[in-house]
């Protein structure tokens, strides 16, 4: 990837993508802190953070030197996606079963 003729352009693209990724992480964290109940917090955390991680991985992949590194970054994103999605479902299911989801952490 580094042999691309326009290193400056890829650098700018990387900055834009990772910057956008950081913004989504920030939004997800804000949602985690500010949203009132467990389900909407999970929603903020999983959706925004998975998108943020994907954008950061994409931005970093533009700087990778080999395709193997790109593959590893993609694998990291897919695994994090799978883990976050499954764990969010498990947490939500557990909260539903216990009936403790709403209002428990309400300030």
């Amino acid at each position: 990837m580094a042999e691309l003729a326009l290193p400056a352009l890829t650098m700018i693209l990387t900055m834009i993508l990772t910057g956008a990724g950081l913004f989504f992480f920030l939004a997800g964290s804000a949602g985690l802190i500010r949203f009132p109940d467990l389900f909407s917090r999970l929603h903020a955390l999983t959706k925004a953070d998975n998108l943020g991680l994907g954008l950061i991985a994409l931005g970093v992949a533009l700087q990778a030197e080999t395709w193997a590194q790109v593959g590893r970054l993609a694998l990291i994103w897919v695994l994090a996606l799978l883990a976050a999605g499954s764990v969010a479902l498990l947490v939500a299911g557990g909260a539903l079963a216990e009936g403790t989801a709403r209002g428990r952490h309400r300030p």
Binding site: L82, A83, S86, L89, L90, G93
Partner: peptide, 13 residues
Amino acid sequence: GVMAGFGRVLPPI
């Protein structure tokens, strides 16, 4: 369920 699926997909990796 979710756990059963998760427990099947992740272990090979």
